[in-house]
Design a protein around this nucleic acid. Structure first.
Lengths: 211, 211
DNA sequence: GTCTATAGCCCGATAGAC
DNA sequence: GTCTATCGGGCTATAGAC
């Protein structure tokens, strides 16, 4: 991999692990195996590095938001795929969701888009829940869908932080993603038909195993 | 108020508003209207200041955890009072819940106690939900209580952050607390009896108005 | 494209006068 | 108990050799 790309990947991983504001450019350079001055050849300053990562993030988000229930026969599988894409995104760009306070107050693409991303994600969940009701998988008053969508996004977004703050293992590979997905399922599991529950469970299992 | 106490209160407010790591001791001194050097007469260093606030926090937490359903006749009112105390605590010590990554890796009282606080808070919610079932306010399979307690704590804890990240108003007096409480109610409102729903609603309203 | 050296800034904390 | 003055350290970023 080119040095420029290696810097980007390493930076994203370090920021995720230890916060944007806590990672010094000296540490980043050391982790990349290059001199610190070399960073500034590839990226004008630390913020330019942030904005490069944010650019990738925004592309990935649009791709994930496009995951909608296109085939009524497979809506539960498509839901599992969407969930998995969302959790991958939340983990891959965790520091962007988490460390906004570190960036300072200047407006930029990321800060302008994030509110819309949350709004669009909740709409995405509502679309899936509507589809599940229409397909007789979910027995729920339509009036409850907005609250359910909000609760789902909130739990999937913050469950990792909740585990970390609770002193439980929130590392990759520790089953933290599975725990978040299962926790969000408790929100509407009672309203799922028996067959839907099993289909969804299996679809989630296979999505998680492929990971 | 004594200078020492004024520093503590001002620090807590500034940390809540702008993160522990982003508030410089120069800013804190200016906000208190004293010289920066005077800070170090009252507190040995910035961490000692943090630990003084954490000490107050731990006292308040124990007091809030002691709020349990003692009177079956008034369990819904007592639940409203507990919710209100929890939300007050989350807002008053917001930065302690939020900025743990800023404190560095050294263990101290706070980092040791926080996991237990989350665990005890979930137990507290379970106790209330059991009491509501016993009192015929809540119709729910007991097996669902742990998940409901976890979901409740998660939503009450993170709803403020969710509003902020979503670009919505999360300031004091903007109804953010009411929004969090209402969002958490959507988790089990369908399982409440009609009279319980009304009693709880009124109890929450009066608790919020007293604030 | 990568290195070394270092400038310049901000921060937490100290020393010592009043 | 409060102030002024300043130090030492860590950080981002620049300059310039190779």
């Amino acid at each position: 991999m080119k040095t420029k790309d290696r810097i980007l990947e390493t930076a994203r991983e370090l920021f995720n692990a230890r916060r944007f504001g806590n990672v010094t450019t000296a540490e980043l350079a050391a982790e990349c195996g290059i001199a610190e001055g070399n960073l500034w050849y590839h990226y004008k300053n630390k913020r330019a590095l942030l904005e490069a990562i944010a650019g990738q993030f925004l592309l990935d988000v649009e791709e994930r938001l496009a995951l909608l229930p296109s085939d009524p026969e497979r809506i539960l599988h498509q839901y599992a795929d969407m969930l998995f894409a969302l959790m991958s995104e939340i983990r891959r760009y965790r520091f962007l969701y988490r460390d906004q306070a570190d960036y300072g107050e200047h407006t930029d693409n990321l800060l302008k888009r994030l509110p819309g991303i949350y709004r669009d994600t909740q709409s995405q969940f509502q679309t899936f829940f509507h589809g599940m009701i229409k397909g007789n998988h979910l027995a729920l008053d339509q009036a409850h869908i907005p609250a359910l969508a909000t609760n789902s996004v909130l739990i999937l977004r913050y469950h990792l932080e909740f585990l970390r703050e609770s002193g439980q293992d929130s590392d990759i590979g520790s089953g933290a993603v599975r725990a978040a997905v299962e926790q969000h399922l408790t929100l509407f599991q009672q309203s799922l038909s028996a067959s839907a529950r099993e289909t969804l469970h299996n679809a989630l299992e296979s999505a998680l195993e492929t990971a």
